[in-house]
Nucleic acid binder design. Structure first.
Length: 497
RNA sequence: GGUUCCGUGGCCGAGUGGCUAGGCAGAGCUCUGCAAAAGCUCGUACAGCGGUUCGAAUCCGCUCGGAACCUCCA
């Protein structure tokens, strides 16, 4: 079997994965900022790394998957000013940060459940780790790589860059940065334009604030990930994931802080997923082209022709390699929806097929083909998690399953061993590794019973050539959104649209 | 402007030197009371121009077009 290879953003090449601690993997993924609702673009990293997590587990690793919740920072809820701290409104009228954070955290968890992503092992919050962050900043100051100015603390990038390769991860040259960094608020108190904040003094209207050795303030954007990753995964850990847009300055800064603090480069393998684009442009607030997840699921958005099931989105994302951009479009989503439906139906049919021995029916070519298609799946995933290729192989298996189900191909064309292998692996790959689920609720016992009754009546009618009755049943059900299909051999199957 | 990356058939997308994924849409056929599924077959694409090579979508150069980051960002 092939070795797992991961494209490391740091070295810009695929590397064979070797965990620091045998049998274990420590993985940190940058989580959501819960000051607003997640949009389609946000779903990409969480689905991508969910599959990474699932596949590593499949390989037998014990994975500690840490994904943070960013609930501290410069908070304002959309359409609401952050001046509440000094306003004269009553307490209950004011924006309470934790209330907002709770609301969007809940919504995020709900969306992740819709996508059938597994929960991280630890989901630490930034506000819950202020102490760790302050301790880390203290260490960096003591090491001489940070300085305090008017209640804020900045990281000395120039000093760091003199000794370490600042900019290597993001392919940046410090001199260029000094030239091109734009003017921002508070820029003048930095010693150098490239320096970044570890701790920021809170202005009076800033509603999230904590006491620190440097006065009342709040942590800088990058320090939370360094502090929490160190705490839960150690100074040096295996995988750090996130969107490509976080390469600079976020991850570059993380490396710098952690290295000074812990005297070691924090991450072995940096993984970055590419963006979801819309008309070729990244989906993002500043482009005014976001489609929120609730809108995706409900279809309530001018760009959407219909509602899309979370599983359709998950499948849509997995059909592309995670390092490629993925262009949003109704046509593409619709294609994903139909494709997933066909794949899932074949998969459910497979579990209903009963194997019957028949030595004469054995077809070695087909048997070998199935073995090959399944064995390749692991190789594809081992090659930097190529879910697109995995799905292509699964689709190659679909017509074979359907033909066996329709008995156009005898089940015994496959050896018992291969058939069992097929059943077992389809389940493993579809459900456990790709994390797909059925997108309707056909597995309701009562509904099953009612449907079976209708099917029996329709069968009777058909046998009497009473097509008026049989068509009535099928048409009425269709109006309700249930499709009834006649199958070869006289059986019927049904499905909720 | 700097850094990095990309440009594949109607659409979405794999693919890094020869064996020319896959999904969806489209066409034809089979099965079928009809329908829906399903099965079979078909389309022969790699921005343009040069170069390297026996051979390039895949390597090199140039041109054109697009994107990401440099600012909050998945």
């Amino acid at each position: 079997m092939s070795d797992l290879k991961i494209y490391n953003s740091y070295s810009r090449q695929k590397e064979i994965f070797k965990p620091i601690t045998a049998g274990h993997v420590g993985m940190y993924v940058c989580g959501p900022t819960v000051s607003g609702e997640s949009h389609l673009g946000h779903s990409r990293p969480y689905i991508t790394f969910d599959v990474v997590n699932r596949f590593l587990t499949h390989l037998g690793y014990k994975v500690r998957y840490v994904r943070n919740i960013t609930d501290a920072g410069h908070f304002e809820e959309e359409g609401r000013e952050a001046e509440d701290k000094i306003s004269k409104k009553a307490v209950l009228e004011k924006l309470e940060p934790m209330e907002m954070v709770q609301k969007y955290t809940n919504l995020f968890h709900w969306a992740m459940a819709q996508f059938n992503t597994l929960s991280p092992s630890i989901e630490p919050t930034a506000t819950g780790h202020i102490v760790e962050q302050i301790e880390m900043i203290k260490k960096i100051i003591a090491a001489g790589y940070a300085y305090e100015k008017n209640g804020s603390v900045y990281f000395d990038v120039k000093k760091y860059a003199a000794e370490y390769d600042y900019g290597k991860l993001s392919g940046r040259v410090l001199d260029d940065l000094l030239e091109t960094t734009r003017l921002l608020e508070g820029q003048d108190e930095k010693n150098d334009k490239a320096d970044f904040a570890l701790w920021k003094k809170a202005s009076p209207e800033h509603i999230m604030r904590w006491q620190s050795p440097w006065g009342i303030g709040f942590p800088g954007w990058h320090i939370e990930c360094s502090a929490m990753a160190t705490k839960y995964l150690g100074a040096e850990f295996d995988i750090h994931g996130g969107g490509m847009d976080l390469l600079f300055p976020h991850h570059e800064s993380e490396i710098a802080q952690s290295r000074i603090c812990n005297h070691v480069a924090p991450v072995r393998y940096w993984m970055h997923n590419n963006m979801i684009t819309i008309n070729g442009k990244k989906m993002g607030k500043s482009y005014n082209n976001v489609i929120k997840l609730t809108e995706m699921f409900s279809g309530q958005h001018p760009l959407l022709e219909k509602a899309y099931h979370p599983m359709t989105i998950r499948f849509f994302i997995l059909q592309t390699h995670y390092r490629s951009t993925l262009d949003f479009g109704n046509e593409a989503l619709l294609a994903a929806e139909k494709g997933l439906k066909r794949l899932w139906e074949a998969y459910s049919k497979l579990s209903n097929i009963v194997y019957e021995e028949n030595k004469n029916a054995f077809d070695k070519t087909l048997d070998d083909k199935i073995q090959k298609l399944i064995n390749e799946l692991t190789d594809f995933m081992n090659d930097d998690f190529n879910t697109a290729k995995v799905l292509a192989n699964l689709f190659d298996i679909v017509p074979i399953i359907n033909s066996m189900y329709d008995q156009t191909i005898p089940v015994a064309a496959l050896s018992k061993k291969t058939f069992d292998f097929l059943q077992k692996n389809m389940k493993e790959w579809m459900e456990n590794i790709l994390g797909l689920t059925s997108f309707s609720d056909e597995d309701n016992d009562k509904l099953q019973g009612v449907m079976q009754l209708l099917i029996d009546i329709r069968k009777e009618a058909k046998s009497k050539k009473d097509f008026v009755t049989s068509d009535k049943i099928r048409n009425k059900l269709q109006e309700l959104g249930i499709t009834l299909k006649d199958e070869k051999g006289g059986d019927m199957s049904w499905q909720i649209e």
